[in-house]
C-alpha cells in the first residue's frame, strides 16, 4: 500500500508532466515561428556574405557586425565611423522620439475628451478612432502623400488662404515622415491613454482643485501621474513600430531620407549583404530592448501600487 504521502507526490509529479505535455504544441510553434528565426538571423550575422546575396554557410566572419557602425577605406584601409549608417540610426531614433512626443501631445487631449463624454457616446468616439485601421497602411500613406505634396491639399489650402506664396516642400523630407508616422500611429496612443483615463476617478480632480491646484497643476500633479501607465503603454506601442518603420519613410521620405527599416531592406535586396542586414536588425532589437528596459524601470519606480 502506498502511503498518502507517496500518492500525493505522484499526483503532483503527474500534474507537472501533464501541464508540459498540454502546452507543448503551443511552445513548439512559438519556438519555431518566433524565436527560431531570430537565431537564424543571429547566425547569419556572423557569416560571410554570398556573392549574389545569401551567406556562405560555415564561413565565420565579423564583417557584417563591423560594417554596422564602421567602414574601411578601400584605398588605405583606415577605419572610420560609417557616417551614412550613423545618420540613419540617428534619424530613426530622433524621428521615433519626436513621433512619440507628438502623439502624446495630440493623443492626451483627444483621450481626455473621449473619457469625459457621457458613457454611451464614448463608444462611438472610440470606434471613430479605430476607423483608419480598416484601410491598408500603404494606401493610407499614399493618401498622406496626396495631402502634403506640393500640389496637395495642404499646400493648395495655404496658398488659397494667402498664408504662403510658394508651396512648402514637405515631401521627401524628415517632416513628411513625421507627418505620416504621427497620423498612422496616433490611434495606438489614443487607445491606451483612453483606457487609463476612463478609469480615472474625477473626484480626485475635484480634490486637486479644492487643494488650490490650478488647471495646469491638476493636470501635472493629479491627472498625469494617474494616467501614466496609459502614457507608457502608448509610448511603447508608438515608439517601437516607428523605429522599424519601412513603408512610411519609403513612400514619404523618398530615397534619401532612409530609416532603419529601409536600410535593412536594402541589405537584403540591392545591397546583397545579408550578414550586415542581420546585424543591423539585431542592433535595432537591442535599441528597442534598452528603450523598453528604461520605460519599465521608470514605471516600476514611480507607479508602484497602482500600475
Amino acid at each position: 500500500m502506498a502511503t498518502a504521502r507517496e500518492v500525493s507526490d505522484r499526483a503532483a509529479r503527474r500534474d507537472v508532466r501533464d501541464r508540459w505535455l498540454l502546452s507543448a504544441p503551443a511552445l513548439i510553434v512559438i519556438f519555431f515561428a518566433a524565436i527560431g528565426p531570430l537565431f537564424v538571423m543571429l547566425a547569419y550575422s556572423f557569416m560571410a556574405k554570398g556573392d549574389y546575396g545569401d551567406v556562405k554557410f560555415g564561413q565565420f566572419s565579423l564583417d557584417g557586425w563591423f560594417s554596422v557602425f564602421l567602414q574601411r577605406d578601400i584605398f588605405d584601409d583606415t577605419i572610420t565611423l560609417a557616417d551614412a549608417h550613423l545618420s540613419i540610426f540617428w534619424r530613426s531614433v530622433r524621428l521615433s522620439v519626436i513621433t512619440t512626443v507628438l502623439t502624446i501631445a495630440l493623443g492626451f487631449p483627444t483621450a481626455y475628451f473621449i473619457a469625459t463624454r457621457p458613457r454611451h457616446t464614448r463608444e462611438i468616439w472610440v470606434f471613430l478612432v479605430t476607423i483608419p485601421f480598416w484601410t491598408n497602411l500603404l494606401i493610407r500613406t499614399f493618401a498622406m502623400q496626396e495631402v502634403i505634396r506640393n500640389e496637395g491639399i495642404l499646400n493648395t489650402l495655404l496658398i488659397r488662404l494667402g498664408i504662403i506664396a510658394q508651396p512648402l516642400q514637405i515631401m521627401y523630407t524628415d517632416a513628411a515622415i513625421l507627418f505620416g508616422m504621427v497620423y498612422v500611429y496616433l490611434p495606438l496612443m489614443v487607445l491606451p491613454l483612453y483606457a487609463s483615463m476612463e478609469k480615472l476617478d474625477f473626484r480626485l480632480v475635484e480634490a486637486g482643485y479644492d487643494l488650490y491646484a490650478g488647471r495646469l497643476q491638476v493636470l501635472r500633479r493629479v491627472i498625469f501621474p494617474l494616467v501614466k501607465p496609459g502614457v507608457i503603454a502608448g509610448s511603447i506601442l508608438v515608439f517601437i513600430p516607428s523605429l522599424g518603420a519601412y513603408v512610411i519613410p519609403r513612400v514619404l521620405g523618398g530615397g534619401k531620407n532612409m530609416m532603419l527599416g529601409n536600410l535593412i531592406e536594402m541589405q537584403f535586396g540591392a545591397g546583397r549583404n545579408w550578414p550586415l542586414g542581420a546585424a543591423i536588425s539585431i542592433t535595432l532589437m537591442a535599441i528597442v530592448m534598452v528603450a523598453l528596459l528604461f520605460y519599465v524601470r521608470n514605471t516600476a519606480r514611480s507607479g508602484a501600487g497602482h500600475g
Binding site: 473626484r203 475635484e206 480634490a207 482643485y209 479644492d210 488650490y212 501621474p225 507607479g303 501600487g305 497602482h306
Partner: peptide, 17 residues
Amino acid sequence: FKRPVNTVFQSYALFPH
C-alpha cells in the same frame, strides 16, 4: 482653487499615487 475653503469628500478622494 481660489477659495480658502477645503473639503473632506464622502469618498475621501485621497490621491492614490
